[in-house]
Design a protein around this nucleic acid. Structure first.
Lengths: 188, 188
DNA sequence: GAGCAATAATTGTTGACGTCAATAGTTGTT
DNA sequence: AACAACTATTGACGTCAACAATTATTGCTC
């Protein structure tokens, strides 16, 4: 049983397709690669461009690397990137419902449960009953959690620095701005 | 036994406490949060910035989204992003050793095995014995594989377009250039 | 020319992760 | 009082990355 990549992701994430620029195809494929030689068939055929020609793939790959860097930098603290994300989110406000964490961070509600469990176990966060709705729990940072964030802030910056090493300050700023535009688009 | 954040990715199972910075007590939180009020403590403290202030985290998150988009766009073909990556890599050259695929694409050798298995099963690629080293296998694109790439190229472009929707052509170019610089740094 | 370290492909295992379905407790509405 | 919608939670399934171990093979060395 190989790997029939059957259903997985989900239902139609509202793919707003737009062929606007798809039409703008090269049209320069004169040589139809008769034989399979030519050590490096330069990208005169769109479908044989290198992967790095694709911004989407670059994002995918750099995202992986970024996540890995974050995780290794966090590993001695016993947390993972997702815990860190929750902590950082909690630090921006005044505590949040688990539901809120789920939608804002993009994690499944069932994932939030485990993450908050871990954070609670480490004393970095607490669940408190919501006063107005007994179904909800409000998750708040503890003083320990704040201290932890203070302590790992430098490490976080170091990771970002390492990742963006080849860029100067100016370029980092524009990169960040561009990424932010994309991220906010999808209501992340 | 929910999820003790113990050993996972690598060694260092230790939960590891860190008192180092715990001593570095606030100094600016005059109000020791006696209650849980104070609607929004503005980001005058670096460690309570929003997550989106971190380029690394943005990359991580957008990488996820990019991967998902790619996968959903590919799912009807029975392949996943990683298969597509292999195909695209094969298309750039003249076939490759599995070892080569592993190092260049950044996947574990054991992952390559399954990927090539699937591609072979679909008739998109073939394993051939390497003439000079009987340990190695050379993986080559079949004509079917080429046809498949031609067919899905438009879909790939559509995905990238959707992802980068909020950016105009100029901005996409600079984003791509910046990402490429980063990617090539780590020898991807 | 027989041993021996290194290497390529492979198998198997483990933990993290995303998705989905189901359930119990709760809320608001009718 | 009944019912639909919602929150947190549990459990299951499949994908995926990271490793360890194994087999076949190579190249080196003594």
């Amino acid at each position: 049983m190989p790997r029939p990549p059957s259903g997985a992701d989900t239902r139609e994430p509202a793919i707003a397709r737009q062929d606007d620029t798809v039409n703008a195809i090269p049209t320069t494929d004169a040589n139809a690669t008769p034989t399979v030689n030519a050590t490096s068939i330069d990208a005169d055929e769109p479908w044989m461009r290198g992967l790095h020609a694709d911004t989407g793939y670059l994002l995918y790959r750099l995202g992986l690397r970024s996540g890995q860097l974050f995780n290794t930098s966090l590993q001695e603290s016993g947390l993972r990137l997702r815990h860190y994300a929750v902590l950082r989110f909690l630090a921006t406000g005044e505590g949040a419902l688990q539901r809120e964490l789920s939608t804002r961070l993009g994690y499944d509600p069932s994932a939030i449960v485990g993450l908050v469990d871990d954070l609670e176990k480490l004393g970095f966060a607490e669940r408190r009953p919501a006063p107005d709705d007994r179904r909800s729990r409000i998750v708040v940072l503890t003083e320990n959690g704040r201290a932890f964030l203070r302590g790992t802030d430098a490490a976080g910056l170091r990771v970002t620095n390492e990742l963006l090493a080849p860029l100067d300050q100016q370029e980092r700023a524009t990169l960040h701005a561009l990424l932010l535009r994309i991220a906010e688009d999808g209501l992340n």
